[in-house]
């Protein structure tokens, strides 16, 4: 993992933030730091405090769950234009799975604790933000349903 010079990635260039309120963008940019990962690096670990919200710009991240039988089961991958993590919005603010870079991955990591306060202080913008985040949660839910149905295994 490496922290890079502040000049590169901008929150406003990420698809997730596209068109959001300018003030929110400025706040987000203020709380963002660039984080680069090499293939194989852990980005977040199950049970750790969820203190960052990652915007993926390049690369690919695997979301993994581990059980005794399947220690490395990838349940979803996250790529450019997508975001990683919503555990920072859900008490007790701990990661619920592992995230690992599959290839060299460039992200912006927002200070999630501070950003949560920003969203709380600006309810209208905060709602707009949640409206964008919730579909990602819904997609994870649908993915879980599909896996539960084991539709391809029929």
């Amino acid at each position: 993992m490496s922290e890079s010079a502040p000049a590169g990635l901008r929150v406003g260039d990420h698809a997730f933030f596209e068109g959001l309120d300018a003030q929110l963008l400025r706040e987000a940019q203020r709380l963002a730091s660039e984080r680069h990962f090499n293939a194989g690096d852990w980005i977040v670990r199950d049970g750790d405090p969820a203190t960052a919200f990652f915007l993926v710009f390049h690369g690919k991240v695997a979301l993994e769950v581990a059980t005794a039988e399947k220690p490395h089961l990838t349940i979803q991958t996250v790529g450019p234009g997508e975001v990683l993590g919503w555990s920072w919005l859900v008490p007790p603010y701990l990661w619920r799975l592992d995230a690992r870079a599959l290839k060299p991955t460039q992200t912006l990591a927002l200070d999630a604790v501070a950003f949560r306060k920003v969203l709380g202080a600006h309810p209208a913008q905060g709602f707009e933000f949640l409206e964008r985040l919730l579909p990602i949660v819904a997609q994870r839910l649908e993915n879980t349903q599909i896996q539960l149905l084991d539709i391809h295994g029929l």
Partner: peptide
């Protein structure tokens, strides 16, 4: 779902 031998998309 995939193991670590898969570098493609999961989801």
């Amino acid at each position: 779902a995939a193991g670590r031998d898969w570098y493609g998309d999961v989801g």
